Computed example of a mutant assay.
Amino acid sequence: MSPGDKVLMFETGHFATLWHKMALRLDIQPEFLGLPGYEGWRHGVQADMIEARLKEDTLHELKAVCVVHNETSTGVTSDIAAVRQAIDAAGHPALLIVDTISGLASADYRHDEWGVDVTVSGSQKGLMLPPGISFNALSLKAIEVSKQAKLPKSFWAWDEILEANKNGYWPYTPSTNLLYGLNEALDMLLDEGMDHVLARHQRWAAGVRAAVEAWGLEIQCQDPSVYSPVLTGVVMPEGVDADAVRKIIYERFDLSLGMGLGKAKGKMFRIGHLGDCNDLTLIATLGGCEAGMKLSGVSLKGSGVTAALDYFAANPLNADER
């Protein structure tokens, strides 16, 4: 990108909002599409809105479309292939730039097949590592466009990195310990097989959603077609402070839950179900949530723990678990 470039972003939650804020600080001119209000944070990217806006941009002033794949703040996994189809249907040359920091290795993601130009990810979610490594996957188109970009950059410049990568090296001092961890994490994922990994995450997510339904509470994501396999947002009843509930759960059961962020602050909490996890740890997590909500005076319809146990028993990941 160059100073003053216009980009189109879609607001799906807190991390899309932070990306918008970053663009402003870098002297990019972001245009923020989205559904109105808090309800807009309960749905995924609306590809039809992107297509309509790009068709209006007959001078092709918009240089990129930026979307978050798995919105960590809401538990929504957007349809990236549909966004590429929208760009193509509009006949627009904008780059497609995707943040899949919390989606990689937990939710299905296909950089090449879906026609993504720049993918941004990190080590701290599905790759099961501490934060500290970030990754880019690049299309040839993105590399060519970057050669004309005027924003100042040194550490973030791709040219030196791509040259060093040809021989398996990095142009600066690498995070050696994290790379050893990454090597082990990749071996774990590939030994299991990515189809199995993705199915495992979908199963865990479905079990947690069964628990939320049994509690009689709402899931933050309102569109079942884009439920996240990475995390589930649990919306508290009107008048209940989700952060106060989280505090009780943490203090009584040493269980840390994700807080509601931005427009969702105080309205919901987040249960993660990704990476190196299993049925037992999730059942324990749901047990802590259920007990903590009862202690907080939240009226629950039934037992989410029992519902999740029933779901996992009826839906084993492997045939030999029946």
Rank of each mutant, 00 (worst) to 15 (best):
I80Y: 03
W158P: 11
K141W: 10
D117C: 04
V120F: 12
H43Q: 06
P36D: 05
H69M: 05
A52V: 08
L189Q: 06
D279Y: 05
A94S: 14
M268E: 09
M293P: 12
V68F: 01
G260D: 02
I143S: 03
S134I: 12
N165Q: 15
E160W: 06
D159A: 10
D279V: 04
T12C: 06
R110A: 10
D108I: 10
S139D: 00
I133N: 03
E218Y: 05
T74V: 07
Q85R: 15
N70S: 08
L54A: 05
H14E: 04
L35T: 06
V120R: 06
G4Y: 12
A211G: 13
S78K: 03
V208F: 00
S146W: 08
A206K: 15
V240W: 05
S256G: 09
Y250V: 09
K294W: 04
K294N: 10
C221T: 00
N315V: 01
D99H: 09
R252D: 05
H20Q: 15
L274S: 04
A137H: 11
G262T: 05
I248C: 11
A210P: 07
R270N: 09
V230F: 00
R270T: 02
C289I: 06
L151E: 07
Y109G: 08
A314R: 15
T100R: 03
T306F: 05
I283T: 00
T176D: 05
R270G: 07
L231M: 14
E251P: 09
S102E: 08
A23F: 06
N318D: 10
K55H: 02
W156T: 15
I249D: 07
R322I: 05
L151S: 14
P30T: 00
N167G: 12
K166S: 02
Q46W: 08
H20I: 12
P171S: 01
K147E: 13
H92A: 03
M9A: 13
P152K: 08
S296D: 01
L231Y: 04
F135I: 14
D79E: 10
D5M: 04
H60W: 14
I249E: 06
L62Y: 09
L18F: 11
E71K: 10
V212K: 10
E238Y: 07
D187H: 11
C289W: 01
S154T: 13
S78D: 02
Q220P: 00
F15E: 11
T176V: 11
M188V: 03
A82C: 09
L179K: 10
A205I: 08
E113W: 02
V226A: 07
L286T: 05
L33D: 02
M1V: 11
S303E: 06
R246K: 15
T119Y: 02
L140M: 09
T12D: 03
H92E: 08
H201L: 06
N183H: 05
E184C: 12
P131C: 03
T119K: 03
R200I: 01
G34F: 03
M259D: 11
E144A: 15
I283C: 02
T281Q: 14
P3D: 02
P30I: 04
R252H: 11
F32L: 15
A89W: 07
C66G: 06
E71F: 01
D243L: 03
A157K: 13
